[in-house]
């Protein structure tokens, strides 16, 4: 399902990171935010992605989510070699995953409903089905009464739930979530993790980046641990990399 071998990601290397690197110094441009990362995640597995802030969790998820191409190394996703795949194929791969971004990225002009409906509409799913499934999803996640609100009118926790709803509304085979419980209180965080676990039990592969130890202890699962861009623990292999 996911196989990385010796993947590194250097920022400031042209097309991989559009825009932003211009504002960074020379040193930063040479910086490798991921170095020699290798692991596999089989279909249907659940992984915690752990590591201190700045360890490279978001960067790794960015690679997995096809938001950045590895600078070196091999990355295979759904059996497809990502670097060799044509652009159209990448689009197809993106449609098979749901992503919860650390910064949520809800579109402020759209209602909660339209934000959550976005992946379905981009996939050209018939509107009646979109209406039914988005409503059901929002009810289930506790936003059934805020369908028409703009993201700006929601609390941090509600926004996070909307972002999660958008990521899971297509029941994607792969779910990548970057600190999805960051602005939630403990009971809400547990409830959401239960949703993600349920999705995992229905067959989706799920990777959740977090530094919430409480959650990790509550939901036992193998973890991948990053430290300064290197993979230092792969719970599934039970191998410690120095």
């Amino acid at each position: 399902m996911i196989r990385l071998s010796d993947v590194s990601l250097r920022i400031g290397n042209g097309p991989n990171w559009p825009g932003r690197t211009r504002f960074l110094g020379r040193a930063a441009q040479r910086r490798e935010v991921l170095q020699g990362v290798s692991f596999t995640v089989p279909a249907g597995a659940f992984r915690w992605l752990l590591g201190a802030s700045g360890a490279g969790k978001s960067s790794l998820l960015r690679v997995l989510q096809l938001g950045a191409m590895p600078t070196t190394g091999e990355f295979e996703l759904f059996g497809t070699s990502v670097q060799r795949a044509p652009r159209r194929q990448l689009v197809r791969l993106r449609r098979r995953m749901g992503v919860v971004f650390q910064d949520l990225r809800l579109l402020p002009e759209l209602s909660v409903f339209d934000n959550v409906a976005l992946p379905m509409r981009l996939a050209q799913i018939a509107e009646p089905r979109v209406q039914a499934e988005v409503s059901e999803m929002l009810n289930w996640i506790g936003l059934g009464r805020r369908l028409l609100a703009r993201p700006g009118e929601l609390s941090g926790g509600e926004q996070q739930r909307a972002a999660i709803a958008r990521a899971v509304v297509l029941r994607p085979p792969l779910l990548l979530a970057d600190e999805p419980t960051g602005s939630l209180d403990a009971p809400q965080a547990l409830r959401l993790m239960e949703l993600l676990m349920e999705l995992n039990q229905l067959g989706s592969t799920v990777i959740v980046a977090t530094h919430n130890d409480h959650l990790v202890r509550h939901f036992q699962a193998p973890s991948l641990r990053l430290d300064r861009g290197r993979l230092v623990e792969d719970g599934a292999r039970a191998v410690l990399v120095p």
């Binding site: 509409r121 039914a132 059934g144």
Partner: peptide, 23 residues
């Protein structure tokens, strides 16, 4: 896990958030 959905207005054209009228 769901109740009968109360549907919001059906959009004439799917809102995709590109917001080109303003862009």
């Amino acid at each position: 896990m769901s109740e009968a959905p109360r549907l919001p207005r059906a959009p004439s054209r799917p809102a995709d958030g590109l917001g080109l009228r303003r862009a």
